[in-house]
Amino acid sequence: MMKKITLALAFLALFSGINAQDKFFTKSGKIKFDATEKNSPENIEAVNKTVTCVLDTKTGNFQFAVLMKGFEFERALMQEHFHENYMESDKYPKSEFRGIVANNNPDNYTKNGSYDVVVKGKLTVHGETKDIETKGKMIVQNGNIEATANFPVVLADYKIIIPQLVADKLAKTASVLVDCMLTPLK
């Protein structure tokens, strides 16, 4: 009986070990947000360097979460307006994406190379969830994966209201660049 339990536990440990090796993650990923209106002299850009991101190379499941207060601007006033007036970061402190790599191929992650991917899923920003689909890249190098994607976010889709006064400075569609260097989860 004891032998069977030990065997079962060993199998479970081995099985969970395999699962962990399929997962790659970071807690220091980067997201750049750019809502600069064309021809505007004012750059409305912010960066967040504390993105948590996980990829299951076996299933293609892909998720990231980002805390809104972690977006930093060069100018304090812009940062205050972003958090207080537009994103309401106290009310909606977190944004996240939950989706899947549609053309996932587990074999790609075992050898160095750059692979084009299509990512589909649900993006939640400002308390609103929308389906999105975007192209991205997975660059595999020495056992790590750099996941990058650049996609547009229509601010109105997420009920982010831009006052008329700054409408000529702020783009209606922001560009979001995700850049995460994923390492194996041990």
Binding site: K23, F25, K27, T52, A65, M68, K69, G70, P93, L185
Partner: peptide, 14 residues
């Protein structure tokens, strides 16, 4: 403090 990320990805809470 920019907030809290709960453990819903199996990576621990931060």
């Amino acid at each position: 403090c920019t907030g809290y990320i709960p453990d819903d990805m199996g990576l621990g809470a931060d």
